[in-house]
Each structure stands twice: as C-alpha cells, then as structure tokens.
Design a protein around this nucleic acid. Structure first.
Lengths: 198, 198
DNA sequence: ACGAAACTCGTACTTGCGTACAAGTTTCCC
DNA sequence: GGGAAACTTGTACGCAAGTACGAGTTTCGT
C-alpha cells in the first residue's frame, strides 16, 4: 500500500489527499484510458497542484498501481459483501449465483478494469494486483456456484467471470454489436445449472 | 484504406513500404501495447527512416487505424477460410464449431486484439473497425453453430467469442490464475450442444 | 527524354511530459 | 513554545514525442 523508498508516514490530512488523487486517477482512466493519465490531467481532475503528485507518489507507475489497487479492493469488497450478505440471509444458491453475476456485470462495463488487465500484461507489479483481483472474483463466484450445487464450481466461476468481462469489453468497443449481457447470463446460468457428466 | 486528405496515389514500391510499416506497428503493439507505438519505435522496427511515417500516414491515429484494420482483415479472413473449407469438405457441424473455437482461441491471446477493443472505445473510426471485426467473428461463429444445430446460434456464437476473449485477456493479465481455455471450451461447447428450452 | 508526380530522408521545431526542488506553511509531540 | 517532521506549491529542467519540411532521387506516362 506504500510507495517505494523513503516515503514519509502520512498524517490524516495526507490520506485525504491521496484518496482524492487516486479517485481522480480512476476517473481519468475511465474517461480516456491509462494513456490519458498524466500528472497534469490528474492534478486538474483532483483539484490539487501538480507538485502534490510527486510528493505522494514516487513515480507515475506508482500512482497507477495504487489507483488500480484501490479500484480492485472496492470492487472485490462489494462482491464479497453482497454474496456474504445473501448467504447470511439464507438465500438459495441460485439466487446467490444470479446476484453475483448481475452485480459483477453491472460493475464491469468499466473501461478501467480492462485497462488494468492490459497494463498488467506488462508491469509485473500490476500483474499481482490483477491476479489478486481475479482470485477474489473467482473465490466469490466459486462460493456462489458451490452453494447452488453446480459441479466444477471453480472452473464455472472462471468461465462466467471471463464471459462477462469479454462481453463488457466487446460492448465497450463496438456497442450493440456485441451480445446483450442479460441474455447471455440467462443462457449461461441455465446451461451451467444442469449437471455435466464430465 | 486511404489516409484522409490529399494522399498521393501509391505506386507499387509504396505499397510494400506501407505494409512493412503496418506490420512493424502491429508487432510493436503486441510487444508493448499501443502506448509503445511512436513514430520512432515503428520506424526502427520496420527499418525505415522516420520521415517515411509522416509521408504515408497523415497522423499517428491514422497509422494505428490502418494497422489494426490490417490485423482484423487477416484475422477474420483466416477464420472464414477455415470454416468455409471445412464445410466444403463436408465436415460435421460439431467439427466446424470446435475448429472455429479452437482457431479463434489460438489467435486471441494476442494483446493487439485487446488493445484494439480499448482504443475503439474512444476513437469513433476505430469503433467501426472493431465492430466490423466482431461482426465477422459472429457471422463465422453463427454459421458454425447453425451447422451444428445449436439453437440461438447467433447469441451462442457471441457468447463463445466473448468467453474466449475474456479468458485470453485474463490470462494475459494474470497468467495461470485464469481458467484454461481448452477446459473452458470443453465445458462450454458441451453445455451449448444440448438444446435449451428457452 | 523530359517533366510531373511519387518517393526518400535527414533535420529541426514545438509541445507536453515526468520529475526535481527550494522556499514556504501547517501539524504534532514534548 | 519550539523544533522536527509532514505537507504545500510554483517553477524549472531535460527529454522524447508528433509533426513539418526542403532538397534530393526515382518512376513512369507520353
């Protein structure tokens, strides 16, 4: 969670600014991709002077990494809370799976997620963030699948997550040319809910 | 296929160079993403002087668009040839579907494809290239699905394509954390091959 | 063969970037 | 209340980028 090297211990005031900057970074990414992230654009978006960025983040890579880390943490947290809450309230396995998929799909037309994946393909440290994120999704998904009695729960969860991300990316790229998420989910969950003889 | 404005009509020599440059661009994208594409890196990769790029392409955006257009054309062409060839040789529907999926999956751990999608989310002209590419995949896939007697062939083709792309992206981002493509295809095609009562 | 159009290529200009930094202010602890 | 550490901010430096361009060479129709 900390910048490399001799970063000063933050005071309360500092944390606010850091978060402000990270959220501004994410919103710049959502709008224009990682390519649009410059110290200057982020500073303007966050309403802070340019110097703040170099003070809190040792490099631009650091800034990007922290921003995407925040994004992943919140996204995975939301998913976890949702399924845990449903399970605690005694929801059926099917309900949990459907809610998981729906919630995941709702959060993932967001370009920032895909930018993370691509960036991670090249930056080893981001790779870990991406892997952590996928692991989190897979775990929540697997939990839901297992609750619904779906065989090969882990693989199935991975497939559903990949499909939703794939459709999200296709829709981001080409709009309505890509299949509708809800229709796809309907087919997919229905197909998976029947036992496989594998 | 032509740069905007008053581009000169090309001579034979020119076409060679253009293609050389476009292929170099694609290989730079595969290695370092769209972000790594600069006139200078491409010129070096292609073994041509810097000035050639501005001579043949009015802008960097133009260069990118043309390169990705070439990529899509070849990719879609390969898929089309494969399925058409199989159909002509009297292959079964299942064989065609499996070959389509396998071939698509083989070509799509390539980062360039995902970079195209993301770039297209912002550039309206690239959007059309991306849409064209998805349309081509969907058509070939739909043809294969229909040959195999799979109901809702178009939707199913879209789902398979999205799943493969999603897995490809996840694997690019996080390596083996993501599900295996072959395992996923096995499950997916098996599930889809049984009629849905929707 | 000659002239125009296509092509070649080195060089130079401008801009925007990441980053450094110094001089200042605020906060916190004793 | 004083000093150290955290924070603030404007400004500046060096560099790499996209692009422009002019002077030269090749190609090709007539």
């Amino acid at each position: 969670m900390e910048a490399t090297g001799t970063a000063p211990a933050r005071q309360a005031r500092g944390y606010e600014r850091v978060e402000q900057i990270l959220r501004a970074t994410l919103s710049v990414i959502s709008r224009g991709g990682v390519a649009a992230v410059t110290h200057r654009t982020v500073a303007e978006e966050a309403g802070v002077p340019l110097g703040s960025l170099t003070y809190y983040f040792a490099s631009k890579q650091d800034l990007l990494r922290e921003a995407l880390r925040l994004h992943v943490a919140e996204d995975a947290g939301r998913l976890h809370d949702l399924t845990a809450g449903l399970a605690a309230r005694g929801a059926s396995g099917e309900e949990i799976v459907a809610a998981f998929a729906q919630q995941f799909a709702d959060g993932h037309p967001d370009i920032a997620q895909f930018e993370l994946y691509l960036e991670a393909a090249r930056d080893p440290q981001l790779r870990e963030v991406a892997a952590e994120s996928l692991r989190a999704y897979a775990e929540v998904g697997e939990f839901a699948m297992r609750a619904a009695g779906i065989p090969q729960a882990k693989l199935m969860a991975g497939i559903v997550v990949a499909t939703i991300d794939g459709i999200g990316m296709h829709r981001a790229a080409a709009g309505d040319e890509a299949p509708d998420v809800d229709a796809a989910l309907g087919v997919l969950l229905h197909a998976l809910s029947r036992p496989t003889d594998a």
